[in-house]
Amino acid sequence: MKKHTFGIVIAGILAVAPLLIDNDYYLHLMILALMWVVIGSAWNLLAGYTGQVSFGDAAFFGTGAYTAGLLHDHLGWSPWWGLLFGPITAIMVAVPFGWICFRLRGAYFALATLALNEVMRHTATIMDGFTSGMAGVMILQSFTSKIPYYYIALALAILSVVCVMAVMGHRSGYYFLSIREDQDAAESLGIDTHFYKMISLAIAAGLTGVAGALYMNYMGFIDPEVVFSLHDISIMAILVGIVGGVGTIYGPAIGAFVMVLAQELFRTGGFGVITSLAESTGNASMITIANNMTQAHTLGFGILVVLVIRFMPNGIAGDWEMLVKAVTKKR
């Protein structure tokens, strides 16, 4: 149990957090971060552990989100059914894709996932009779309070971390790692690498689909540009994984909170600090920064990734001991 202490303590803190944080804004950020824990863990299973880097997680996220929304739109079912059917449809997208595209290795596979992302986004836009196209899908949220969403998101986040942990402790986990390290060696040891890559993809797609369904339920509105977004979903999933720590259990969970915080920092202009500084001082350069910061998050993320890869190539979780050493030494 000792090695799970960290996870249990964090889960415990998160479970009581809403009692301490009686603020919808902070709860909103926490819900988003928990959703990113799910997506990041899924991406990490496929890319970090199996070595199949995906640039197209939004394909599965959007499929999950649209499943929830369209079940309600067309059949009148509760969008919460999306939590069950979202992963199923995401897997139905993933399996034929993987069957064809896992013949590609390395960067070529990554490019195929990028294409899948765009194919799904255009499909959702063009089939407007079925998906309402750019008009998007709107539902009425079930709860006005954030608390129920928070606990559902927390449950899904814990589920996904535990799921990845369980998979990695068993046969498939060893096989995933061996495929990452050397596909030919894995094949020579009797591993059906094509099949196991599909298993990894299916689990990742399923988890990402759940996150999408949660997003639909929580936000109440989706359109193709939002849920099939390359930079807001697919790239963000990669950032969560890299910043937190590729190929570590808790890395994506840490990365999720860091990245949601970083995103919010840019979106709000340093939580309003920069903006108020600019207003109070009237400093010209400060005003320029304040005006542009909200749009500069892509630049900021780029710099962040460069710094992480330069100084912590294994991410926050992977280089945790080094990080602790660096901090304590200075004191």
Binding site: E181, D184, A185
Partner: peptide, 15 residues
Amino acid sequence: KPLKRMTVLDNVMVG
């Protein structure tokens, strides 16, 4: 073709 970032034991376990 060692599975470099896995331990020797894990390498053999894969087999």
